[in-house]
Simulated scan of single mutants.
Amino acid sequence: MTEHPHETPAQAVTGMVDHVLALAATWTRWDGRLFEIDDRVYTPHKAVRRVADHLVDHLAELEARLAGEEPQADHWHASTVTTEADLAAFTQEDLDEARSRLTRLARIWANRLETLTDEQLDASPGEGWSFRELARHLRGSTYYADAVGELS
């Protein structure tokens, strides 16, 4: 993962989504080939699903911690499972849906992160990474899209 030293936490998340969607714009050309990375298999749908799940999971964590609650454990199958839906053709409509879903999730993240003070970003309540570290961790969600890559 490339370091971005002057990037705000909000930019880390929105930049990640911009990267994912730039790659996804080429996925309507996908020929059904599976992309095997490490011990996992990826497809365009699976990459979008994983990015969205990662954003939702950590957003739920952030909000619970801000509310003084214990974050709810996630029960995603994550990358270990490739669903039948993951194997479907990736159409222009799927790209439109991914753009809407991921852009809105990134905006929710950016809005929340931009309301937090530097102290809240760095000395975040509860157990786990600081919220600044969490945003940098989310930047790594490009991994899922990079597994599929550019298909132009």
Rank of each mutant, 00 (worst) to 15 (best):
R65L: 04
E97H: 10
H75R: 13
E69R: 15
P71A: 06
D86S: 08
V81S: 02
L87G: 02
E70L: 00
A85M: 11
F90I: 03
S79I: 05
L62W: 02
L95E: 07
L62C: 00
W76E: 01
H75Q: 06
S79V: 04
T91V: 12
E63H: 05
A78W: 13
S100W: 11
V81P: 00
G68I: 10
L66Q: 07
Q72M: 12
P71V: 07
R101F: 06
L87E: 09
D96G: 06
E70Q: 14
Q92I: 05
S79G: 09
A73Y: 14
D96V: 04
H75G: 01
A78M: 06
T83H: 12
D94Y: 10
A64N: 13
L95G: 00
E63Y: 02
D74E: 08
E97W: 08
L66D: 05
E63R: 10
D94C: 10
A88Y: 04
W76N: 08
A67I: 07
R101Q: 14
E69I: 01
E97T: 13
D86G: 09
A88N: 14
E97P: 00
T83R: 12
A85D: 15
Q92E: 08
S100N: 12
T83A: 03
F90G: 00
P71I: 06
A88G: 05
Q92V: 12
A85T: 13
E61M: 02
S79L: 02
R99L: 00
V81I: 09
A67G: 05
S100P: 00
T83P: 02
T83K: 06
T80I: 02
Q72S: 12
A67P: 05
T80H: 05
L62P: 01
Q92R: 12
A89H: 14
A67C: 04
D96R: 10
E69S: 10
S100Y: 03
A98L: 12
R65I: 00
T91N: 07
Q92C: 01
R65Q: 08
S100K: 07
T83L: 03
T91H: 13
L62I: 03
A89E: 13
T80V: 03
W76C: 01
L95N: 05
W76A: 01
T83Q: 06
E97R: 13
G68S: 06
R99Q: 15
R65H: 04
H75I: 08
S100R: 14
A98R: 14
V81A: 01
E63D: 07
T91L: 14
R101W: 11
